[in-house]
Design a protein around this nucleic acid. Structure first.
Length: 271
DNA sequence: AAAAGCCCCTGGATGC
DNA sequence: TGCATCCAGGGGCTTT
């Protein structure tokens, strides 16, 4: 569920409040995608220094080690002084001196992983192969173009893979390509320099815009204060199959790429 | 090496 | 009302 904007919105909703808190106890529910990698007792007594984001991971820096939290498809975090007794889908509780951080994740594609440092093998496995952060200064339009030139897969699939640039989930992949007026099935290496430049701008703008809007809410996403986002209300193509394109009026189309839905305007987005 | 498929899991919407 | 089927915001692993 959460796309990177949601992860970032979630991060901002509790990072300042949890900073400086000492961990009192931790509770695990049903198994998540990966095991914690340690007994919960390892966390007790540690202090949360801050919360960073890398791609769709939230990284809680502790005075010793770090916790890597991934929300998967259906995860959401709450952070509050008091929370009700844990429910069926609350699979991780971190009790701290500043409040309780709780992961709710019905589908359990999410995970909470302990690592001694970002260099520990488990952390490296999860973080090492990620592409550029869209807003990183080093991620220039030219770097983007050079990377695309080496790939012979559909641009939408490549965007979603995170191999070149992270932070473009399934909703935003469709929205970004619509904004850049590029057909989702176009081979990445066939994008012109001009198209790659438009796409580079679109990736950055759409994500910034979505974060501003508080992220998207399709089903159960909410930030750590329990607020829903409203980006889905502004989606130009995602979830709008058969409805008129907001630019040209022709019907929005839906196709499947790599077992994921893609929405686009066949008239505005050329191959 | 890169690309394409498969699969993990639960719940909501839809159709019969 | 009940039951079957399809679909969903992610991404690691295996196969080609």
């Amino acid at each position: 569920m959460p796309e990177p904007p949601e992860v970032e919105v979630s991060r901002r909703s509790f990072a300042d409040r949890i900073a400086g808190a000492q961990i009192v106890s931790a509770r695990l529910g049903k198994p998540l995608r990966w095991p914690l990698g340690a007994t919960p007792e390892v966390l007790v007594g540690r202090t949360v220094l801050g919360v960073r984001r890398r791609s769709k991971y939230l990284l809680l820096d502790l005075d010793e080690g770090l916790l890597m939290v991934h929300l998967g498809m259906s995860g959401s975090l709450r952070f509050a002084q008091n929370l009700p007794a844990h429910g069926a889908h609350d699979h991780f509780d971190l009790h701290t001196t500043h409040g309780i951080l709780r992961l709710n994740d019905p589908r359990r594609f999410g995970a909470v992983v302990w690592a001694e440092s970002e260099n520990d093998p488990q952390a490296r496995k999860l973080l090492a192969s990620l592409g550029w952060e869209p807003l990183d200064d080093a991620f220039t339009a030219d770097v983007f173009y050079q990377q695309l030139a080496r790939r012979r897969t559909a641009i939408k699939t490549l965007l979603l893979s995170g191999q070149v640039v992270v932070g473009v989930g399934n909703i935003y992949a469709s929205e970004t390509l619509f904004r850049a007026r590029i057909h989702p099935e176009k081979i990445a290496a066939h994008l012109s320099h001009r198209q790659a430049d438009r796409l580079w701008h679109a990736v950055r703008e759409v994500l910034a815009w979505a974060i501003e809007a508080g992220g998207s809410t399709l089903r159960n996403y909410s930030n750590a204060q329990g607020r829903n986002g409203n980006f889905q209300l502004q989606a130009a193509v995602y979830g709008r199959e058969g409805q008129p394109c907001i630019v040209c009026g022709s019907a929005v189309r839906k196709i499947t790429q790599g077992q994921r839905a893609t929405y686009f305007c066949g008239r505005c987005q050329r191959r």
